[in-house]
C-alpha cells in the first residue's frame, strides 16, 4: 500500500463546522493517497462523524476546501455536491438502507436513477456486488427481513456498486450485535485487500490494528495525534492513542 505517493485522491483542508455556538470542527485537514486507509478514533462528540459527513458534504462545511481526484469541489454548487457524492461512498452506523426496497433494488435504484444505467445492467451489477458480500441468496429480502450484519453488507454492496473512489465508513460495526460484527469486519478487510481507499471512524481494535495506514486521534474538533499504528501503539509509547486503545482493549477483555 502506498502512503503519500503521488497526488492524494482526497484532500480536505481546513474544514470548519459550527452548529449554533458549538464549533464541532476547528479547521481539520485530511489527505488520502490512493489505496490508503486512515482510521479516525476518539471519544464520541470529538467530531469524527461530522468530519466524515463534511467530506461528502452531507453536512456542508462552513469553510475549507475539498478536492477529489484533482477536482476541487465548489461547495456552494449543488451540481458539484451531487458529483462529489457519486465519487465518495458512505457507510453509516445504522445502515440507512431504503426500507421499502429489497436488497437488490436498494442497489439498482441508485444505479438507475443516479448513474442512469439500464435496469438490466443495474440488476446484473447489483447481483455481482451482493455475491461479493456473500448475500447472493438474499437479493429479494427487504431490510426488515435482514439481520444487522446483513443490512450493513447490503449497504456496503450498494456503495461499491457506484464505483466510488473513496469509501467513508462511519462506525460501521457500532450498531451491530457482537455476534454479527465479524461478518462485516471480514467484508471490510476484503475491501482493504483489494486496495480500496478508505477513511473510517471505528472503535473496533481488530480493524484499527490490522488495517490502518495511519491513525487520526480526534478530540474537541481537532486531530490531536496522528501516526502509524506501529508507532502510536508501540509498547512504552505514552501517546493518547495508545491510552485510548488500551481502554478499548480493556473493554473487550472484560466482555470476553
Amino acid at each position: 500500500m502506498s502512503t503519500g505517493k503521488g497526488n492524494p485522491i482526497l484532500r480536505a483542508s481546513n474544514i470548519t463546522k459550527t452548529f449554533g455556538n458549538n464549533t464541532i470542527l476547528h479547521g481539520v485537514s485530511v489527505e488520502l493517497a490512493k489505496g490508503e486507509i486512515k482510521i479516525l478514533i476518539g471519544s464520541s462528540g470529538g467530531g469524527k462523524s461530522t468530519l466524515l459527513q463534511c467530506i461528502n458534504c452531507l453536512v456542508v462545511p462552513d469553510s475549507g476546501e475539498i478536492e477529489v481526484d484533482g477536482m476541487v469541489i465548489d461547495i456552494t454548487k449543488k451540481k458539484d455536491l451531487y458529483r462529489l457524492r457519486q465519487q465518495v461512498g458512505m457507510i453509516f452506523q445504522d445502515f440507512n438502507l431504503f426500507d421499502h426496497l429489497t436488497a437488490i433494488d436498494n442497489i439498482t435504484i441508485a444505479l438507475r436513477k443516479v448513474k442512469k444505467i439500464s435496469r438490466e445492467q443495474a440488476t446484473q451489477r447489483a447481483r455481482q456486488e451482493l455475491e461479493q458480500v456473500g448475500l447472493g441468496d438474499k437479493q429479494h429480502l427487504y431490510p426488515a427481513q435482514l439481520s444487522g450484519g446483513q443490512k450493513q453488507r447490503v449497504a456496503i454492496a450498494r456503495a461499491l456498486a457506484m464505483d466510488p473512489k473513496i469509501l467513508l465508513l462511519d462506525e460501521p460495526t457500532s450498531a451491530l450485535d457482537p455476534t454479527l460484527v465479524g461478518e462485516v469486519i471480514s467484508v471490510i478487510k476484503r475491501l482493504a485487500a483489494k486496495g480500496m481507499t478508505m477513511i473510517m471512524a471505528t472503535h473496533q481494535m481488530s480493524l484499527i490494528s490490522t488495517l490502518a495506514d495511519e491513525i487520526l486521534f480526534m478530540e474537541n474538533g481537532r486531530i490531536v495525534e496522528q501516526g502509524t499504528p506501529s508507532v502510536l501503539l508501540a509498547k512504552g509509547n505514552k501517546s493518547r492513542t495508545r491510552g485510548f486503545c488500551d481502554s478499548l482493549n480493556d473493554l473487550v477483555g472484560e466482555e470476553g
Binding site: 461528502n56 452531507l58 449543488k78 451531487y82 458529483r83 457524492r85 457519486q86 461512498g89 458512505m90 453509516f92 445504522d94 445502515f95 440507512n96 438502507l97 431504503f98 426500507d99 421499502h100 435504484i109 441508485a110 436513477k113 443516479v114 449497504a155 450498494r158 456503495a159 457506484m162
Partner: peptide, 21 residues
C-alpha cells in the same frame, strides 16, 4: 432522516430523494 442521508450519500438530488425514496 437516515433515509434522506442514505440517498444523498449516493448522489441522489433532493427531488430524486423525495420522489423515489
Amino acid at each position: 432522516s437516515g433515509q434522506y442521508l442514505g440517498a444523498q450519500a449516493l448522489g441522489f438530488t433532493t427531488f430524486q430523494t423525495i420522489f423515489w425514496i
